[in-house]
C-alpha cells in the first residue's frame, strides 16, 4: 500500500473520483497548470484535460454560484477555494443557495457538490491565510462539513463527499498537508460521513478534536499516559451532521471531557459539544468540560504558535479534568 502525505491523498481522491465518474469537474483559481497553490490538483489537468480541470476567473462568488448551476444540471462540481479565508464572497451562495436549494424547491432541484478549501494555521499565513471558519458553516442546515486529519481519511472522505447527494464543505487542514503521512489504498474506497474515528483508546479522559488538532491531542495524550492518565482521543472528522451518538457514548465512558479546536472559543464548535453534554450527559460528568481553543482574537502571524493550541495546553487541560 503506498504511503502518501495528506495533500497527495487529496490529489489521489480527486483523481479516483474523476476517473470513475466523468461528471466530476475540478475547478477554481490556479488549479490547472499550476495544480493549485498547495498542489492538491497537480497533474489533473494533464490527465483529464482542461475540460475536466480548469482555472476560473478570480471570483469566489462566481466559482460557487456556477458550481451550483452545474450540480443542478447533472455535473459533479468539485470547486476549490484557494484559502478558506477567501470563501466569504461566496458565503451567500453557500449558505443561502447551495444549502437551501433542496429545501426551497421541495427536492425538485439539488446541488450535490464539494467545496474543497485549505483551512487553519501553521504556515505563517497571518490573518488571511490561517482562519478556521468551520463554526460559520456548521450553523447552516443543508450543508455538510467534513474535516479529515489523516491521508487515509482525506481520500476516503473526499470520495464519499463527491458521491454525496448534498453539498459538502471539505475543509483540509493545511498544517497537515505535508506533515502527516500514512498508508492509503489505491483506487476506490470511502469513509462514511457522519462517523467519528477513535485515534487512541483510554478510560480516564475523553478528548474531542479534528483536523490539525488531532496530532496535537495525540501527543498530549501520550504525555498524559506517561503520568498515568489514559486518554480517549476522538477525531470528529464530520462536524455536520455530527455523529452525536458516538460523541455521547465517548463522553459517558469517562465523564471527563476536553474539546480542542484552533478556531476562536466563543460560539466555536466546542460550545456545541459542551451544550450537547449539558443536555444529554450531565449526570455522567465528573468534571466540567474544558475547551482548549484559539483565542477570541484574529489570527496573528509571528506569534501563531502561541495562538494555536499546542500539546502542552491540551495536556494541562487533560490533567485538570482528571484531577478535578
Amino acid at each position: 500500500m503506498p504511503t502518501l502525505t495528506l495533500i497527495q491523498a487529496v490529489n489521489d481522491g480527486l483523481h479516483t473520483s474523476m476517473k470513475e465518474d466523468p461528471s466530476v469537474h475540478v475547478f477554481g483559481e490556479d488549479v490547472a497548470k499550476k495544480g493549485g497553490v498547495f498542489l492538491a490538483t497537480e497533474n489533473l489537468e494533464t490527465e483529464f484535460g482542461t475540460e475536466r480541470c480548469f482555472n476560473t476567473p478570480l471570483s469566489e462568488d462566481g466559482i460557487i454560484g456556477t458550481a451550483i448551476g452545474m450540480a443542478m444540471n447533472g455535473l459533479r462540481p468539485v470547486a476549490e477555494i484557494q484559502f478558506q479565508d477567501f470563501i466569504f464572497p461566496a458565503f451567500d451562495q453557500i449558505v443561502s443557495e447551495a444549502a437551501k436549494l433542496r429545501y426551497r424547491s421541495g427536492g425538485q432541484y439539488t446541488a450535490p457538490m464539494v467545496i474543497r478549501t485549505p483551512y487553519g494555521g501553521g504556515i505563517r499565513g497571518g490573518l488571511y491565510h490561517s482562519q478556521s471558519g468551520e463554526a460559520y458553516f456548521c450553523h447552516t442546515p443543508g450543508l455538510k462539513v467534513v474535516i479529515p486529519s489523516t491521508p487515509y481519511d482525506a481520500k476516503g472522505l473526499l470520495i464519499a463527499s463527491i458521491a454525496d447527494p448534498d453539498p459538502v464543505l471539505f475543509l483540509e487542514p493545511k498544517a497537515l498537508y505535508r506533515s502527516v503521512k500514512g498508508e492509503v489504498p489505491e483506487g476506490h474506497y470511502t469513509v462514511d460521513l457522519s462517523t467519528t474515528r477513535d485515534v487512541r483508546e483510554g478510560g480516564d479522559v475523553t478528548v474531542f478534536c479534528y483536523g490539525a488538532m488531532v496530532p496535537v491531542c495525540t501527543k498530549a495524550a501520550e504525555s498524559a499516559a506517561e503520568g498515568g492518565i489514559e486518554t480517549h482521543v476522538v477525531d470528529l472528522r464530520t462536524l455536520l451532521p455530527l455523529d452525536e451518538e458516538a460523541v455521547l457514548d465517548a463522553v459517558k465512558r469517562t465523564g471527563r471531557v476536553v474539546v480542542v479546536h484552533e478556531a476562536p472559543r466563543f460560539c466555536g464548535f466546542g460550545a456545541e459539544i459542551s451544550a450537547m453534554i449539558a443536555e444529554h450527559a450531565i449526570e455522567y460528568m465528573e468534571a466540567p468540560v474544558i475547551r482548549v481553543t484559539g483565542f477570541d482574537t484574529p489570527f496573528p502571524n509571528t506569534l501563531e504558535h502561541h495562538y494555536m493550541p499546542d500539546h502542552r495546553r491540551v495536556l494541562d487541560a487533560i490533567e485538570h479534568v482528571y484531577n478535578f
Binding site: 483559481e29 490556479d30 497548470k33 499550476k34 480548469f54 482555472n55 476560473t56 476567473p57 478570480l58
Partner: peptide, 11 residues
C-alpha cells in the same frame, strides 16, 4: 498573470 491564470482565462 493572476498567479497562474492568464488574461484569456480571466475575462
Amino acid at each position: 498573470w493572476a498567479i497562474s491564470v492568464p488574461a484569456s482565462q480571466q475575462t
